[in-house]
């Protein structure tokens, strides 16, 4: 089964973390990545830009409205995601638990349909981190 791991935390709080704490978080991501690589279950993953960089399209009168910012004003924001393949939910939970769990919430949402896509720009984005 394919699962997505959706990572939420408060941007304003992450903004306050010092380099050491940031490195600690990255290290945990490294652990998840190598764990999933070992089982051949690591799919694409992404870190999202800040919600200030986002726009949201909402229904408007006549034509849709493009609004600045994220979909909803929430305490925690969607910051990044993984796609992983696991045999069952227990494994997916165990994998996601390798990430830092004390700075926000991690949602595991099974994938209903997955298209592999054909991203020319993905390699470039991978370089820039």
């Amino acid at each position: 089964m394919l699962y997505s791991i959706l990572i939420y935390a408060a941007e304003a709080e992450l903004d306050q973390l010092d380099q050491k704490a940031e490195e600690a978080i990255l290290a945990r991501h490294g652990v998840l990545q190598s764990h999933m690589r070992a089982s051949g279950g690591l799919g694409p993953f992404a870190r999202l830009m800040s919600t200030s960089a986002a726009v949201t399209i909402k229904p408007g009168e006549g034509k849709p409205l493009v609004i600045d910012g994220p979909f909803a004003e929430t305490k925690e924001q969607l910051l990044g995601l993984y796609l992983i393949e696991c045999d069952n939910l227990d494994e997916a939970v165990a994998a996601a638990s390798l990430l830092p769990t004390d700075i926000g919430s991690i949602e595991i949402r099974p994938i209903r349909y997955f298209g592999t896509g054909d991203l020319a720009g993905a390699k470039a984005a991978e370089q820039s981190g």
């Binding site: 709080e13 306050q16 973390l17 490195e23 600690a24 990255l26 945990r28 004390d102 700075i103």
Partner: peptide
């Protein structure tokens, strides 16, 4: 790579 709870509290207070 462990993030301690103090880090979290400090981040909450800071933000």
């Amino acid at each position: 790579g462990r993030l301690c709870r103090e880090d979290r509290f400090a981040a909450v207070l800071g933000s």
